[in-house]
Amino acid sequence: MRDCPLHLAEAVLEATSETLENMAFMEAVMAECRLDDFADQVFCWSAVPVLEPVKGTVTLMMSKSLAAMLTSAIMGLFDEEPEDTIICDSLAEVANTIAGRFVAMISPDDVTFKLGVPVTACGAIPVGEGIYSNVCIDIEDDHMCVRISGEDILSLLPKD
């Protein structure tokens, strides 16, 4: 993993903020935390492949309790705990939206980009492979992480 450049973190935060504010009326702010801090929690994650114009992956990771809270906010479920299938479906939709906004932000306006089908699961934090950067974000007194993986997609960002 390389150090997360500020402009990457800013783009991820902006994409995440827009998505969460629109979908769940939740505010997202940059966090100081590290992903290792929540290694003992049950995590839910959704990985969205970026297929065009470059290859890479945008992975959204958060505790299962936060994923359930997010799902309830999006679906308007106030008196019931969402089922695991609904939590995974919501997480995939949120991850897909964040990935789309992020890639749109770092791509020229006239460039076509294409996302693949999200892969979603609950369990241990997925192990990062190759080159990636984690951006930690606070929402509702909890933390989530957006991981941008792949040399090609990271190379779209301006060099320091």
Partner: peptide, 23 residues
């Protein structure tokens, strides 16, 4: 959720009322 100016143009030329990006 994807950005595809060519597809947007194609959809609009087919008569689609609007193409909206997520979220």
């Amino acid at each position: 959720s994807a950005g595809n100016p060519a597809l947007e143009e194609e959809l609009k030329s087919m008569g689609v009322l609007a193409v909206i990006a997520k979220p």
